[in-house]
Simulated assay, not measured.
Amino acid sequence: MPEPGWIDEIFDGVRYGLEGTVVAEEQSAFQRVSIIESKRYGKGLLLDGCWMTAEGQERHYHESLVHPALCGAEAIDRVLVIGGGDGGTARECLRHGSVQELHMVEIDGLVVDWSKQHLPSLGGGCWTDPRFQLSVGDGIAWAAAAADASYNVVIVDGSDPAGPAEGLFNRAFFENCRRILKPGGVFATQSESPEAFRQVHIDTVKLLREVFGYADPMYGWVPMYPSGWWSWTFAATDGARYRQVQADRAAAIAAGCEIWSPRWQRGAFDAIPAFMERALNQ
């Protein structure tokens, strides 16, 4: 076993690091995939040297991405997750008993394989849940080929807008996501840090408002990510339904959540700083 050292993501003149060791690393067809064992947050995943998740951090991210969408959509029978190869998003979706089918499309099979092997707690029982269907392939192409109004919820759990995730942040992709969303549906995406990726965040929210009609960012924290301050943006065509929590769905999952609750969600949507509110309203 290598001696412990510092494993850093370096972004825009700042280092975001954990003390630990690299336990597996390989270049896939798409990116460099690294598994680390850290002292603070347990095992974690990096893609091309950027932090994706860790055992002691993942709930900050996955609960925030999933539950506003699944507690706000009119129905949640059919869910599409694009990306999400570590399994955390699928796990949180499948905690909702009303989900009948969940399709996950992950471009990199190595991420799935290594997450199952090294980070089994993230996916939990999702990999063997009969409602779960995994496709290893291009999520952008999947959305383009899917039938109109075929999903109640579409969730994008991608990495930063570079490399294999670059196409997840453009109008053509968002328009397909709107097209395949059923009436009363909700779209959700991680939308970067409003500090470290400020312009990407602003552009993403504005574009989603143009495409869907209604879109709002929600702010929280993932301490291992650049700046620690993160965002998720939710969109719908028939009003800001993602802000309205269906009480029965919330009650069924709340006791198992570490971060998310209806109260936390209300505060997270309202925690928009003045400069960001001005920028989004220009």
Rank of each mutant, 00 (worst) to 15 (best):
L181E: 06
V186S: 01
A149Q: 14
I259A: 06
Q133M: 03
Y41V: 11
V136D: 01
D138L: 05
A24N: 01
G5K: 12
T237V: 11
I180T: 10
D138G: 07
F11K: 13
S98T: 12
Y219D: 08
I82D: 02
G44S: 13
A147P: 05
A165N: 07
G56M: 05
I259Y: 13
E37P: 07
A251G: 15
R95L: 14
C126V: 09
K206G: 02
I107L: 14
R198H: 04
C257R: 11
A247C: 07
G185Q: 00
M224N: 05
R178A: 11
G42T: 00
D8L: 07
I35G: 08
F275G: 04
W6F: 13
S159P: 03
H201Q: 11
D12Q: 12
I35K: 10
G88D: 05
L168D: 02
V245L: 14
C50I: 11
A172G: 11
V156I: 10
R59Q: 15
V105L: 03
T53H: 03
D129H: 04
Y41Q: 07
L110F: 08
W142C: 13
C177G: 01
P4L: 08
E74M: 12
L110N: 05
V156D: 04
W221I: 09
P4K: 13
G109L: 12
D238I: 06
E192G: 04
F173R: 07
Q244K: 11
Q199R: 13
F169W: 03
D203C: 00
D203L: 03
A215T: 09
A146G: 14
G167P: 04
C71Q: 05
H67N: 03
V222T: 15
W221C: 06
R266F: 02
G158R: 01
T237A: 05
I107W: 04
M276I: 04
M218S: 15
R209Q: 15
V245M: 13
F169N: 00
P273T: 04
E166W: 03
S28A: 12
R241D: 06
E26I: 05
G20T: 13
A255D: 14
S135W: 02
D113A: 15
T189W: 10
K116L: 08
E58W: 07
W6E: 15
A251W: 09
S38C: 12
G85Q: 09
G56S: 10
A172L: 14
